[in-house]
Design a protein around this nucleic acid. Structure first.
Length: 457
RNA sequence: GGCCGAGUGGCAGAGUGGCCAUGCAGCGGAUUGCAAAUCCGCGUACGUCGGUUCGAUUCCGGCCUCGGCCUCCA
């Protein structure tokens, strides 16, 4: 089976075929760098990282850009509130974001363009749009004229009447059409701004992505992705601008949108305040656990997030690593993920289905007594895990990282003492020692190859 | 109000016109000095009311409930 992906634009699953197999292009809308990103922000980073890995395994070159919005009114507000420079805010939070997603095993994209590095291209694109009659200047603003693009609304599935009827914002008087949106806006002296043919100002949000895509990926890209909430207006507007600026060329051949993390069924968001930042979760849990949890639901579905979600992912992942630990000395055979696993991912990145396949292998691995079989299972587990960005750690390291802060020497000493007691058939003393070990938060396992210990759940 | 999506066992979460998701938790069993781990098994799960069908959780329609977008938002 070939890769099938759901296209928001057509509302159906489509076979993915890149325009140029020698250079596959994908763009994912990143974050606005003005505060700590929450775990919901990590979902597209992780989900599309899996897509990136999958594509990279099949095509010689995948150019993946994930941008930073580093000029924005929220950033301005944050800088003003803290009385520091705008750069101080954006540099800090871009770095934090990169550290955070790296902790979730997210590979660095090919490119991480920043909006402020593309102001010239944005201005140029605006000029093009004006020249082609798709945009106009008004009172220091440049506005995209929506009626000039008849396909407007196609991506989000709404018509102009609906949009006007549902409009909750007052229409600025200088707009020719109520649906027109800003490409460029004037800055006051205390706001960041750049000189332009329309005076000192700053770009509107939507033009940023279009200019960065044009600069780095081209007029037509294979995949454009982002959160579900970006469909309208952000992606609808990007689509309009990009298409019009390039004489009607297809802007993105496939649109993908991830669903939200929810808490008590409600969207996790900054405005509601029902969130966990990546930072606080990473401090408490291994990044791989968070990644597993994020991939445990299909990317287009909402995912209910709670401490329990994380705990369940942890327990499941422990089981996987225990299975691998058991065959630590077995050399894995093969480095290809089997078809049944790939079929799951090929079906619009069905990671829960892929996890079900992994679970079967884990059980098989725990049951198998045959070395060659173990080698095969281990090989496919590691190969499949690599595509998901999971299970790549040495099991010993995995369990060791959880026992930080425990006096390992003391635990070992107690285990020796218990072993002696058991040898002497003094089980009462052995149990007493085990209780002492348990008091340290440590669980022990008597295995054929000796007594092992790990942290309690 | 407009547009869109969803309601699956205690929890998370796939999927399918008739047969098993899977994981976590729980219960029973095997194993173990006891545990832990592992394995095996178990729970009459598919919002509701109709319709189509030999047969529907899966298709169609109504209803109810919930969520998302329409404003910054992953």
């Amino acid at each position: 089976m070939s890769l099938i992906l759901y296209n928001t634009l057509t509302r159906r699953k489509e076979a993915f075929t890149p325009a140029d197999p020698a250079r596959v292009t994908m763009y994912v809308c990143g974050i606005t760098a003005y505060s700590y990103a929450h775990i919901g922000n990590a979902r597209p980073a992780v989900v599309f990282d899996v897509l990136f890995r999958l594509l990279s395994a099949r095509y010689p070159k995948v150019v993946y850009a994930r941008n930073f919005t580093d000029v924005d009114d929220k950033i301005n507000a944050a800088a003003k509130a803290q009385n520091i420079a705008i750069d101080a805010i954006t540099e800090k939070f871009m770095a934090i974001y990169q550290e955070d997603v790296a902790a979730l095993n997210v590979l660095p994209p090919t490119l991480e363009p920043r909006a402020t590095h593309h102001i010239g291209q944005m201005i140029k694109m605006n000029e093009t749009l004006i020249a082609k009659g798709h945009a106009y200047e008004a009172e220091g603003h440049v506005l995209f004229n929506v009626p000039s693009f008849p396909d407007y609304g196609k991506l989000s599935g709404r018509n102009r009447d609906d949009m006007i009827a549902g409009a909750r914002v007052e229409v600025a008087p200088y707009k020719k059409d109520p649906a027109d949106f800003v490409l460029w806006k004037p800055s006051t002296p205390d706001q960041p701004g750049w000189d332009s043919p329309w005076g000192r100002g700053r770009p509107g949000w939507h033009i940023e992505c279009s200019a960065m895509i044009e600069t780095h990926l081209g007029n037509t890209i294979d995949i454009h992705a982002g959160g579900h909430d970006l469909i309208f207006p952000h992606h609808e507007n990007e689509l309009a601008q990009g298409t019009c600026a390039h004489g009607g060329a297809t802007y993105a051949r496939l649109w993908m949108h991830n669903g939200f993390l929810t808490m008590d069924k409600e969207k996790m968001s900054k405005s509601l305040g029902n969130l966990f930042t990546m930072r606080e979760l990473i401090e408490k849990h291994p990044g791989e656990v968070l990644r597993w949890a994020l991939l445990s639901a299909h990317y287009r579905q909402p995912l209910e997030w709670s401490e329990d979600t994380v705990d369940q992912a942890k327990t499941t992942l422990d089981r996987a690593y225990r299975a691998l630990e058991r065959v630590a000395d077995v050399k894995p055979a093969g480095d290809k993920a089997p078809k049944e696993f790939l079929d799951a991912l090929d079906d619009d990145l069905n990671t829960p289905k892929a996890f079900a396949v992994l679970a079967e292998w884990i059980t098989a691995l725990n049951t198998s007594q045959i070395a060659s079989e173990q080698a095969t299972l281990k090989g496919q587990l590691l190969a499949a895990g690599a595509l998901l960005g999971l299970l790549q750690q040495d099991p010993k390291a995995w369990f060791a990282q959880q026992s930080k802060g425990v006096d390992a020497a003391e635990v070992e000493r107690l285990i020796e003492a218990r072993l002696a007691a058991r040898k002497a058939k003094d089980f009462k003393e052995a149990d007493r020692i085990r209780d002492a070990i348990a008091a340290l938060g440590v669980v022990i396992e008597d295995r054929p190859d000796g007594t092992k210990w790990r942290m309690a759940e």
